[in-house]
Design a protein around this nucleic acid. Structure first.
Lengths: 104, 104
DNA sequence: ATATTATTTCGACTAAACTAGAAATATAGG
DNA sequence: CCTATATTTCTAGTTTAGTCGAAATAATAT
């Protein structure tokens, strides 16, 4: 994953509503949850939620599958894993060998 | 680290300039780098950079130490570690046990 | 066909982020 | 004291994000 995609994904998770949605979907598991279920659980107005879900899908944090009338949202675990891997590789160098301090 | 602080930190890292700054500081190591050094390396106008650095410091991603005329910026590795830990705990459940494997 | 349910798109607004030049501040050296 | 350097604050403009009611779309059932 490249710099810009990582930044875009972090920006999406950097919104409180969207982070809540992602956490909810992770709890829901691989089956995900429908837009309506998310809406009821988190109490976000439908049009607002739809907007946030579209953004999350756009960067690949979630996938949306249409099953008749309902749209099921599924968290893309691997996408988040890739973001975390990038952060570990690019932003955590040197954390193990700490020359200045021990712990805090 | 709580939900809101995680979201705020992710939002800061979710900006391309700020992610570049953080990566640069990590490469610089525990000694960090001065504002001027960052400015030269990344080519961001001084006032713009100052603004981004202040935001990063506010959420605890970096620390700023004044040494005579220059201000040294140091990455707070542990802060990012805490953010990553939150993501792993709250947003990666179920990734190890495959959906095809035993449910629990 | 009509009604019901699930979700999105539209439209309009407010708030916040991003940008960067110019002026101000702070510190050090001559 | 004056000058150079490092960085911030001020100011102002542009852009993007966030919000949500109302209307539109899509699918299903009656």
């Amino acid at each position: 994953m490249d710099h810009e995609r990582v930044a875009a994904s972090l920006a999406e998770l950097g919104n409180s509503h969207r982070l809540s949605v992602f956490r909810f979907l992770v709890k829901a598991g691989y089956g995900g949850a429908s837009v309506g279920e998310i809406q009821k659980a988190l109490g976000i107005p439908a049009s607002t939620l739809s907007h946030h879900l579209a953004r999350m899908a756009k960067v690949g944090l979630i996938r949306q599958e249409k099953h008749s009338r309902t749209i099921v949202c599924i968290p893309e675990y691997q996408h988040l894993e890739n973001v975390i891997d990038f952060l570990r590789e690019e932003c955590c160098e040197g954390i193990a060998p700490n020359p200045t301090a021990k712990a805090q």
